[in-house]
Write a protein that binds this DNA or RNA. Sequence first.
DNA 1: TATGAATGAGGCTTCATTCAT
DNA 2: AATGAATGAAGCCTCATTCAT
Lengths: 213, 213, 213, 213
Amino acid sequence: MGDLEKAARKAQEFRQREREILDAALALFLEHGEDRVTVEMIADQVGIGKGTIYKHFETKNEIYLLLMIRYEEDLAELFRSIDGEDDRERLPREYFSFRIQQPRRYQLFDRLENKVIKEQAVPELVDKLHTIRAKNLDSLVRTIEQGMKADTLEPVPPYYHIALAWALAHGAVGLMESPFYQKYIDDKEDFTDFLINVGIRMGNKGQRGRRDD
Amino acid sequence: MGDLEKAARKAQEFRQREREILDAALALFLEHGEDRVTVEMIADQVGIGKGTIYKHFETKNEIYLLLMIRYEEDLAELFRSIDGEDDRERLPREYFSFRIQQPRRYQLFDRLENKVIKEQAVPELVDKLHTIRAKNLDSLVRTIEQGMKADTLEPVPPYYHIALAWALAHGAVGLMESPFYQKYIDDKEDFTDFLINVGIRMGNKGQRGRRDD
Amino acid sequence: MGDLEKAARKAQEFRQREREILDAALALFLEHGEDRVTVEMIADQVGIGKGTIYKHFETKNEIYLLLMIRYEEDLAELFRSIDGEDDRERLPREYFSFRIQQPRRYQLFDRLENKVIKEQAVPELVDKLHTIRAKNLDSLVRTIEQGMKADTLEPVPPYYHIALAWALAHGAVGLMESPFYQKYIDDKEDFTDFLINVGIRMGNKGQRGRRDD
Amino acid sequence: MGDLEKAARKAQEFRQREREILDAALALFLEHGEDRVTVEMIADQVGIGKGTIYKHFETKNEIYLLLMIRYEEDLAELFRSIDGEDDRERLPREYFSFRIQQPRRYQLFDRLENKVIKEQAVPELVDKLHTIRAKNLDSLVRTIEQGMKADTLEPVPPYYHIALAWALAHGAVGLMESPFYQKYIDDKEDFTDFLINVGIRMGNKGQRGRRDD
DNA sequence: TATGAATGAGGCTTCATTCAT
DNA sequence: AATGAATGAAGCCTCATTCAT
């Protein structure tokens, strides 16, 4: 095996390790809350030394941000895969589903974002995150504008629709994770279904939000 | 002045100080995030010593919970003041407005609740909080059931409607506070109005969620 | 009632309160250990305010010392009441019994003395304590010297005998309070009896320490 | 040097540091009393940072217990080294000497044990301590039982003899450390000798406790 | 590159003592 | 004299980050 090959493999392994760390961190953050998870716990989970983590990431905050970026990139990937389809409802539906599917994860990211911005930490990565997100948003905006041209959506600024959906999604997540309200929801699946339907058609002209029709 | 009177005044002042501490704590939590606010900062803000705080509250967690309870009691007060009115839409509207009006506060409480429950701290107060909240919920449920009898609401379990509204409110809050999405909303007031309307009529039969009609 | 009488009664009540505080303090120290007992707890137990305690005693250390002095004075009282009797064994026996009877109390005082001396607190009271104790010791020494003249005790320095008895008493107390060794003693009374007998005759010439003869 | 060797050396050094911390802690506890010694003082004494202490021990209480266990293990070691010898008096004598030789240390441990048990701290280590001590006790019990078979000891339950010796040792320690009684003892060595002799023969049949015969 | 021991700033909490009423 | 609210020094412990090997 040549040196080049070796170096490539090494780089490969390094990337792989990075992914492992992020995966472990995410899992632990979700399970215990980011405040109760120490860098050492993450290292243990991956089976490496604490110092090694700092070979990959400068600070714990950077881990936070990379997780969030990864999430947003997955969303971008989803959008790319849908792009070009005819079904105009598909994109918002997928967006909505994606976000609502893993409530705790999104909730975590929301918390992290507020925290990281409050501390003004790692501004470059915050910028990167926002750039990706803006692109994703753009996809949505364009879809919505098409919907408005097709005269199926209320003629309000596009972001009203997005924001509405975002709000509902965000809220639905909060609801389903609320230790208190959880008790009141018997059939989670049915309720999720209900929410998604309302969410998607909420901004439609005419019979908005109607379910099962 | 009699001794009784004196004692009463002292008790009064003690209560007052308690309120001051909670107010200061809330203000600081909202401004810097609860993690960046130390007990000492709260004391400084009120202009008292660190130790004094602990004459009023056993732990920082207790401060968290008392703030949340206060909030929920304000809501209860609101419900009481409305009770007995004819306008069936009034209650949900007020609920929705109340929650959406002070986004950061609610968001803070949501974060705190998750944190406090995760740490299993001050369970008696958590119980108290949930009791009050359950009562508030009851008010809503009853109103909604009346709405369903009056055949203006979709015949799904009442909490579907509440949950929906909760979710939207929660989400709207998250949205309006999101450092990222904020940039996209030009006219906050108009948007809030839009959301509130959608929120209230979302679950209506027929022309749900329609605005200005 | 004249002013004098009133003043006298007041003084009387003041003394009484002082005694109450000391009693309460002792009880609490014995139950929870002096470190876990706050001045506030003592005040609550007596049913007075915390500040009042400081009208009677300058510091918590002073309370410690006054308790110890009271104890030593009780011992002096005991010696006085015996003085003049013929039975030469009576004094040591009473001394030994007195100390061994309330193990935890003595242990507490022992702990306190070390603590207070280490901190060099309230030296006047420490002196007072030692003066009283020296007097008590003197009573013992004289009794022992008489025993030696009567040729019933080993002719070693008198304090050897006292110290021996002290040591055994102290040790017996430690033993009976040791959470560990306690498990090994089935019949406490019988064992105490055994100890006391050994203690008294330990220094005798000839058949020393023999039991039941 | 191989990696294995390196790791071994590191582990070795880690152990060594642990010992250093315990030694420093013990020295400080003995000198100032455990309450006046802060974790930071221990760290300073060793010449390390405060946090490092917590890499080795979870709490200050754990340090207390490990010191006590170490002490008890030394005793066990002593017993092991004697085991099998013919001289039946050797074991109790060594036990007695061991305990009486370092009075302040034992006294410290006695205080610590009571404290730690009152706080119900680190129960696993308390158990471990008691297990070791029970084994040590067993050695003594067996020796004593042999003495009774040989008809040289009073036929009371074996633990009476142990307890007696324990009590005397404990008491002797308390005595020699008592800031008050200390003044009365001129020749410490002679007195210790006196005590040890009494201690060992105290329970003998016949001429018990006689010295130099 | 990987490691993990070491660091120390910083947080929460306790409680003896003071002092204005 | 009695009170108890207020104080703040001081202690224990956590953990992100550094750095020598």
